[in-house]
Structures are given as C-alpha cells and as structure tokens.
C-alpha cells in the first residue's frame, strides 16, 4: 500500500510537522487541562496567599506588582508547550474562567485580564516569528504580558490615583515579576513536565527525549 515516511519532524516548528495554524486535537485538550490545573493553584493562591502578601506590600502598594507573574504563568507555559499563535490566549482565558467560576476578587474582569495577558505573550512569540521557544523568549513573553495587563488595564481601572512615578514603579515591578515568575518559572515548569513524561506528544518533550538518547 502507500508506504509512509515520517509524519513527525524532529526539529520542525510543530510536533506533527503541520502548519503553524493547524492545531491538533491534543493541543486543545492538553492546553485546556494545563489551564484548569493551574486554575486550581491560582484559586488557592488568590484565597490563601494573596491577602497575606497584599498586607505585606501595604506600605508601598506599587510593590504589589511583584506578584503579577503568578497569573501570567499559564500564558507563557501554554505558548511554550503548544507553540502556536493564540495558544497563550487560549490557555490564559481558560485559567481565568476557572477563577471566574470559583469566585475571586475581580469578578468578570479576570476574563479581560486573561485576554490581555495572553495577547502580550502571543505578541512576544510573534515578534520572534514563532521560531524561538527558549528561556529568553519565555521571559520576553512574561514582560509583554505584564505591560499589556498593567498599561492597558490596571492603571486606568484599579489605580487611577497613583502618581506617574508610582504607576511606572508598579509597571516595572510587574515586568520584573513577569520575566522571573512567568518567564523563568514557565520555562522551568514546561521543561520539568517534559522530563516527567507528562507532555510526550509535544515538541518540548520530543527534543528532551531525543537529546537524552544521543
């Protein structure tokens, strides 16, 4: 019958060698589960840890931006895992839906935040033309996600009384947090998931396994 060669490329952009916009079914299912799993963690963070940290930053509230990276993590991890345009938005929105359904302090606004954060990460990977998924790309993603979230939304809705200095300090803290927690953290998370055999169908795991073989 029709003999076949590789359907999967080793170094290509996607696990299946298909076009950048052709999502596989498993991309959606695993991406969504990643979001829900992290959503469970978010909810715990929002409920138990955030009020405490919030109190700790009360002396100079713009420092609170240092916590932002936690919420940006799903977007960065989603983009690194799925490696397709829109992956960051998809994963971050579903994580936001989990928060919304469970109840949180921002109400339906988490959906807006989720979209902006995912958009920021998508723009970052898009600037790199969907060719780089290394740690610096991940950190850029985290930074831009923070910029989109803060400059397009939080300044105006939550902190209109901040002076420009305070707004910029808040933004700087957010960017730092995005780079470290979401960027470095997201990169480390995805790599650890690959090592644990949790994402075998994805390029990050395929690279790790083939390299281990050599």
């Amino acid at each position: 019958m029709n003999p076949r060669t590789d359907t999967s490329t080793r170094s290509g952009r996607t696990a299946s060698g298909r076009s950048l916009f052709a999502w596989r079914g498993i991309d959606f299912v695993v991406g969504a589960m990643l979001a829900v799993g992290l959503g469970v963690a978010f909810w715990g963070f929002d409920t138990f840890l955030y009020p405490v940290l919030n109190g700790a930053t009360a002396g100079y509230p713009p420092i609170g931006g240092l916590m932002l990276g936690i919420w940006l993590l799903p977007a960065v991890a989603g983009a690194l895992l799925i490696r397709r345009p829109g992956a960051a938005i998809y994963v971050e929105i579903i994580a936001a839906v989990v928060e919304a359904l469970l109840g949180n302090r921002w109400g339906a606004a988490v959906l807006v935040s989720g979209f902006l954060q995912g958009l920021g990460v998508s723009v970052a990977f898009g600037l790199l033309r969907w060719r780089r998924f290394d740690v610096s790309a991940a950190m850029l993603g985290g930074v831009l996600a923070a910029v989109f979230e803060i400059a397009a939304y939080e300044w105006w809705s939550y902190y209109p009384d901040f002076s420009w200095t305070q707004k910029l300090v808040y933004l700087g803290c957010g960017m730092l947090s995005g780079a470290v927690i979401a960027g470095l953290g997201g990169f480390a998370l995805v790599r650890a998931l690959a090592r644990a055999g949790a994402v075998n169908a994805f390029p990050v795991a395929q690279e790790a396994r083939e390299n281990a073989l050599r």
Partner: peptide, 29 residues
Amino acid sequence: AASLTFALLVHGLRQAARMAVAMEARGFS
C-alpha cells in the same frame, strides 16, 4: 503546595493525553 501543583499537573496532563485519544477516536477533529 508547589510540589502538589506540579504532581497534579503531571497527572492531569497525562490524563488529558488519554482523553485526547478517546475524543479523537470519537471524531473530535
């Protein structure tokens, strides 16, 4: 909590891969 979340993700994503098999076999795509 961090260790538990990671363990939860490993478990959840492995299950998601099996879910994808079952869903694809039922015409998901």
